[in-house]
């Protein structure tokens, strides 16, 4: 079953999202360049928990008037399978990639009232101060209560918020863009990513937001738990017995997204799909699922797009 959108066939299927813990932080620095450098470094090698310690990416650039210290900021989101498996990579990545980056400071980007838990990340990082760290208390008994740590570093002082909000989030939102040519598929996917990043609280952790080598669970090799998504590889569509690549499709790119809630992920999927359908040469869009056996979120394309 399928339906048409802007002349592109959309399969009536769903992306199978699964539950992860997500957190959002805001990194600020003296200028946009250093904020982005810290954020990019921190989110390196964090595409998929298949082989990375977490999934992470830049959510958006935050203008100075929206950051706590009035400097340019970059919002980063990190996802892990449990609170512990989120805290550890955050601690390591902030410690190695943000603390080390000149002029940076780091703030919680998920307020306590919206979070399911508060992670003691800054509280642990403070020990780097070797006893010279200073606790900074703001707004006691007045407009709220915020806690920071000021850690002396060779360049000056690193400011880190004591706790970071985390909540049960949705990972594995996805859709496949299928086109007649590699160029058309790439252009459509790029437009999809641009559109997705207009939706808050969503990240696309793969390179540039795109995954050209979508994977399936398992392989013919006993030592490999994930392998190339053979049903969607155009290069073997005539060789592979159960190929799902439609006629005339020569390139497929997967757009993968994680979000802090189901609503945001669906909104981002819809924005991405609509943008992708505007490119000539795109013929078919579908999504990857495992028959509803693995994840608890069935992110239907029809539902996301609001098509009845």
């Amino acid at each position: 079953m399928s339906f048409m959108l802007n002349g592109v066939e959309i399969e009536d299927t769903f992306a199978e999202g699964f539950s992860m813990w997500g957190s959002r932080i805001v990194i600020t620095a003296v200028n946009r360049r250093w904020a982005n450098i810290a954020a990019s470094t921190m989110t390196g090698f964090a595409t998929s928990v298949i082989a990375c310690d977490c999934e992470a990416s830049i959510e958006r650039e935050v203008p100075p008037d929206e950051t706590p210290d009035g400097r340019p900021g970059t919002a980063v989101m990190v996802f892990g399978f449990s609170r512990g498996r989120l805290t550890t990579p955050m601690l390591n990545r902030i410690g190695q990639c943000v603390l080390t980056c000149p002029t940076t400071a780091i703030f919680n980007g998920l307020p306590e009232e919206e979070a399911d838990a508060m992670l003691d990340v800054g509280k642990s990082i403070r020990f780097f101060g070797d006893g010279y760290q200073v606790k900074m208390r703001m707004d006691d008994g007045w407009v709220g209560r915020r806690r920071f740590w000021r850690i002396p570093v060779m360049e000056g002082e690193f400011l880190v918020e004591e706790k970071f909000g985390a909540k049960r989030a949705v990972a594995g939102g996805n859709f496949l863009v299928m086109g007649e040519t590699e160029a058309a598929t790439l252009e459509a996917s790029e437009r999809a990513i641009e559109a997705i990043h207009t939706v808050p609280l969503v990240i696309t952790p793969f390179p540039g937001g795109l995954c050209r080598s979508g994977s399936k669970v398992g392989s013919t090799y006993p030592f490999l738990r994930a392998s190339t998504n053979t049903p969607f590889c155009p290069a073997i569509k005539e060789t592979f017995p159960d190929s799902q690549v439609p006629e005339g499709i020569n390139s497929v790119i997967e757009v993968v997204l994680n979000g802090l809630d189901e609503k945001s992920v669906k909104a981002a999927m819809a924005a991405g799909i609509r943008a992708a359908t505007e490119v000539e040469g795109v013929k078919w869009i579908t999504a990857v699922n495992f028959g509803g056996k693995l994840g608890k979120y069935n992110l239907g394309l029809k539902d996301a797009l609001g098509v009845s």
Binding site: T28, P68, D69, G70, R71, A105, M136, M138, D139, V143, F148, R150, G156, E157, L159
Partner: peptide
Amino acid sequence: TYVPTMMKLYMRQLKEG
């Protein structure tokens, strides 16, 4: 002598709050 980041938070709070 330095420019403490934390002072930016306080100065913004004093001005805006």
